[in-house]
């Protein structure tokens, strides 16, 4: 399913992780992230263990490390905040290369950086191995309220139509000599955004009419529900179990 979804976060491989049912993967990544978040930041060995888990997972899913790291740069704006913490933090301070750094701040920065990176990498692995369509299906099977999955389904279908609309409007603007080099020229762009909104709103009405004409009464038909086999649940449980094991070991050993 989902053939032809050219999505920048999805990597089309015939790996074993790709074949897992989406709901299984979502639960595994969610539990893994929770374990990572509740680990105290000073248990450094635990984070090394988590990173190793992610690396093993990426290798199993046949997702190249460079591909993953390039997309992980989305995290940078958030990490920037962490850089400030050691300088602005209170309490005990250490001297390092002539800089006075707060120990508490250093821990805070490490906390954000390590947990953020692990969370982003886990999510990227999920996105790389699961199509958008399957992600929505997975959420649906996990009993996420159908209003959310319906909105996501429509977004998935119409985002490209909308982007096409926006592109055509831009070409039409450019063809009439529009060249927004100065701030006061963005008015046409703003008006364009407004009319895009109106168009989408009207399209929404027409889509609804077409749906009602085909018997829509408020629920999208449920796609055939084949339960993920227990074997898949067991296989994917390896990730949260291993991470929980690392967390416990780190707590006991230190």
């Amino acid at each position: 399913m989902g053939a032809g979804h050219a999505h920048p976060l999805y990597l089309d491989r015939a790996g074993r992780v790709h074949r897992l049912a989406p709901e299984v993967k979502i639960v595994a990544v969610l539990l893994f992230t929770i374990v990572v978040v509740v680990t105290p930041p000073t248990r450094f060995w635990a984070f090394a263990g988590y990173a190793l888990l992610i690396a093993v997972l990426a290798a199993t899913a046949r997702v190249p490390a460079f591909w993953l790291l390039k997309r992980a740069t989305i995290e940078l704006p958030f990490v920037l905040l962490a850089v400030v913490l050691p300088f602005a933090g209170h309490g005990e301070r250490v001297e390092w290369l002539g800089l006075s750094l707060s120990i508490e701040g250093l821990h805070g920065a490490w906390n954000i950086f390590a947990k953020g990176t692990l969370g982003v990498l886990a999510s990227l692995l999920l996105a790389a191995t699961t199509t958008m369509r399957d992600l929505i299906l997975g959420l649906d099977r996990l009993r996420v309220p159908s209003v959310f999955t319906q909105i996501a389904t429509f977004m998935l279908r119409y985002i490209d139509v909308l982007a096409d609309d926006a592109r055509r409007m831009r070409i039409a603007r450019l063809s009439r000599g529009y060249d927004p080099r100065f701030l006061w020229q963005v008015k046409a762009f703003a008006v364009g955004v407004g009319s895009l909104f109106l168009r989408s709103y009207e399209r929404g009405e027409r889509v609804y009419l077409a749906m009602v004409s085909r018997g829509y009464t408020g629920r999208l038909p449920q796609p055939a529900h084949d339960r993920a086999p227990a074997r898949q649940w067991a296989m994917s449980a390896a990730l949260p179990l291993a991470s929980a094991g690392i967390a416990v070991a780190a707590a006991v050993l230190t």
């Binding site: 279908r157 027409r206 009419l209 077409a210």
Partner: peptide, 16 residues
């Protein structure tokens, strides 16, 4: 009564 609307993008709203 099966109605086929003018703009197929209005009629086709599912992912596949």
């Amino acid at each position: 009564v099966g109605i086929v609307f003018q703009d197929p993008d209005d009629q086709l709203f599912m992912p596949t």
